[in-house]
Amino acid sequence: MKRSNTFFVCLLLLLTGFMASLVDVASESGQGLPQAPESAELVSRLGLTDLSLFTEARYTRHPSQADIHSAFQDHPVALEHFPTGSLLQPPMGLLR
């Protein structure tokens, strides 16, 4: 087999994979989120406001409900106590 043929076969396989990923995205977005019904019911019933992703402190657990100076509770752009602080950005007002 010529080298270029091997290259084209590899390229074709990778392009098929690429297209398959786009088809996967399109089909999933048509079906909606798998966890949507249970979560939506819980969110509206309990009035939930935040994701339970960073549970270590109140201003990381509920960033949308935190004090105005949060995240970075002690003062704006303070050194953080928790690693999450490096993932959460300072309040929008400070970035303007």
Partner: peptide
Amino acid sequence: ESELISSD
């Protein structure tokens, strides 16, 4: 299924 909002 709702763990992302209810884990804790």
